[in-house]
Simulated scan of single mutants.
Amino acid sequence: MCGRYALTAHYTKVFEDLQVLGEEDFPARYNIAPTQPILIVVQSEHQRPGSNLPQRRAMLARWGFLPGWVKDPKDFPLLINARAETAVGKASFRAAMRHRRILVPASGFYEWRRPPKESGVKPQAYWIRPKNGGVIAFAGLMETWSSAEGSEVDTAAILTTGANAAIRPIHDRMPVVIQPEDFERWLDCKTQEPREVADLMQPAQEDFFEAIAVSDLVNKVSNMGPDLQKPVPVAAPGDVPPEEKPPKRKSDPSQMSLF
């Protein structure tokens, strides 16, 4: 799944990379969590100046998808992710997959490697970012939910897929990343049906991301500074802490050695 991510690039870089019309400034965010407002990119009805391509616009949505048919959000689970493999067949996401596909700008995401509980080892947080840096775009879905009183809330979810070989040792799922050359096709809900964009919902290339071990500061939503992404040393799986290493044995002349 994807339960935390960050968007730390300057707003002009975000708008430039995603070719979005917008001038509104927004701060760097190092610990974006469910239920918070997130920046999303949608395709508008207007054309770009000097082009016949549709204009993209940025807007805010609540991270936590609410289908239009939900009567009371309190009785509905928080949907922050949608599985790419099954979203088109799910009642919650079917309409959005067909009519309201979006991009979610990000600088990277956080994931936790969770050892078996019986191991006694604490989960380890990782900051997972593109090796080449820059702004990336997660595939997402949006829905505008209307209450019985008439108030409206724009909501969103991030699509996930099976993790690639590089991320799998940490977690078995990862966000779907849409490449810049595919932005137009993903956002085009008028001519591109879900089956025609299914090929975009694949794991990122093995060498696209790098995973950096970070402290558990990210676990707390109120922690929001750049120190969340500061690397920390982590023992490799199977390593024995120095104080637990067995004492060296005296060499036995009857045994051969490679050293």
Results as ranks from 00 to 15, higher is better:
2 C>N: 00
3 G>N: 13
4 R>Q: 07
7 L>D: 02
7 L>E: 06
8 T>F: 05
11 Y>D: 01
15 F>Q: 00
15 F>V: 10
16 E>G: 09
16 E>W: 02
24 E>P: 00
34 P>D: 11
43 Q>R: 15
45 E>Y: 00
50 G>A: 04
58 A>E: 03
60 L>A: 11
62 R>T: 14
63 W>Y: 05
64 G>I: 04
64 G>K: 02
66 L>I: 15
68 G>C: 09
70 V>A: 02
72 D>S: 12
77 P>W: 01
78 L>E: 02
80 I>K: 06
81 N>W: 07
82 A>N: 05
90 K>V: 06
91 A>F: 04
96 A>W: 04
97 M>W: 10
105 P>C: 07
106 A>Q: 03
107 S>M: 07
107 S>W: 03
109 F>T: 06
110 Y>R: 07
111 E>V: 04
112 W>Q: 08
115 P>G: 09
117 K>R: 14
119 S>K: 07
120 G>C: 06
121 V>H: 04
121 V>L: 14
122 K>E: 14
127 W>N: 04
128 I>Q: 05
128 I>C: 02
129 R>H: 14
131 K>D: 05
132 N>I: 01
132 N>P: 00
133 G>A: 06
134 G>P: 04
134 G>M: 11
135 V>W: 03
135 V>F: 09
138 F>G: 06
143 E>G: 06
143 E>T: 06
147 S>C: 05
149 E>A: 14
152 E>N: 02
154 D>Q: 13
157 A>S: 15
159 L>D: 08
162 G>P: 04
164 N>V: 13
165 A>I: 07
166 A>S: 15
174 M>G: 06
178 I>D: 02
184 E>W: 05
191 T>D: 09
192 Q>N: 15
193 E>C: 03
193 E>G: 12
196 E>H: 10
200 L>T: 03
200 L>I: 12
201 M>S: 13
202 Q>E: 12
204 A>K: 06
204 A>W: 08
208 F>R: 11
209 F>T: 08
210 E>C: 11
212 I>T: 15
214 V>E: 13
215 S>T: 11
218 V>H: 02
220 K>G: 01
225 G>A: 03
228 L>E: 01
237 P>F: 11
240 V>Y: 01
240 V>L: 13
241 P>N: 05
245 K>T: 10
249 R>N: 03
259 F>I: 15
259 F>S: 14
